[in-house]
């Protein structure tokens, strides 16, 4: 092999490897993982209106799971949701809407009226933050437990054992973020940052940029 051949080939290969290394180490493009499919559902909201998973297509939706007679730490869950609601203006979302949905895991007691009272008490903006429950407790358990991966179990004393968590779902119905309260303190900053990361990916869903975003998925360049 002549030296003339060697030098350019080393240069080109080196540049390619450097580019790849830059992409993987510096992570100029960050994404959120596509974790699981979000479950499909048809719930009833605090005004008695139906809310389905399909109504939320195209929006980013942040879910949490609670019930109106829940003792603390449910209060912290509500505080986090309200903080996200109040600070949505800080995120560059383009024309993508963000919805917050609190799913009550106490369908026996949480009627629409009770949910409406509760929503007012915690300062929910009805255009953004919806409270829902189901008329079918068994299906609710499947949707929340298996679908969203949020464990809950009614106890004999009337309270409900709950593993509190937030779940972030993208416009295509894929779970992109899970924030378990027991593993990490609720962090509205992180959730808001993640909403921005999702919006960036939607903005770059076409053309050459889309390739970079797919590569970011491939190399697991996940936003912290």
């Amino acid at each position: 092999m002549s030296r003339k051949l060697l030098i350019p080939s080393v240069v080109v290969l080196g540049a390619l490897l450097a580019g790849l290394a830059y992409f993987i180490i510096a992570q100029p493009v960050q994404v959120l993982p596509r974790i699981r499919l979000a479950p499909a559902f048809s719930f009833v909201d605090q005004s008695g209106t139906r809310l389905t998973s399909e109504d939320l297509r195209g929006s980013f939706t942040l879910y949490d799971f609670s019930y109106t007679s829940c003792p603390p730490p449910c209060g912290h869950l509500d505080d986090t949701m309200r903080t996200v609601q109040d600070r949505l203006g800080e995120v560059d979302l383009g024309d993508i809407s963000v919805r917050l949905v609190t799913i009550s895991v106490d369908p026996q007691h949480d009627t629409p009226d009770r949910l409406a009272d509760y929503a007012r008490r915690v300062g929910a903006d009805p255009d953004v933050w919806t409270f829902v429950t189901s008329t079918d407790p068994k299906l609710l358990k499947t949707i929340v437990g298996s679908g969203f991966g949020a464990y809950y179990e009614p106890k004999d004393d009337g309270t409900i054992a709950l593993d509190p968590k937030f779940v972030l779902v993208d416009g295509a119905g894929t779970i992109r973020g899970e924030y378990r309260y027991l593993l990490e303190p609720p962090d509205p900053d992180r959730i808001l940052r993640h909403l921005g990361v999702l919006a960036d990916e939607v903005r770059n869903a076409q053309g050459a940029n889309a390739v970079a975003y797919e590569a970011a998925h491939l190399f697991l360049c996940y936003a912290p």
Binding site: E54, R57, G58, G171, A172, G173
Partner: peptide, 14 residues
């Protein structure tokens, strides 16, 4: 019976 139908798709796949 024969009828004229159309398929419709909502956002995202239904």
């Amino acid at each position: 019976v024969t009828e004229l139908h159309e398929m419709y798709m909502k956002d995202g796949g239904v």
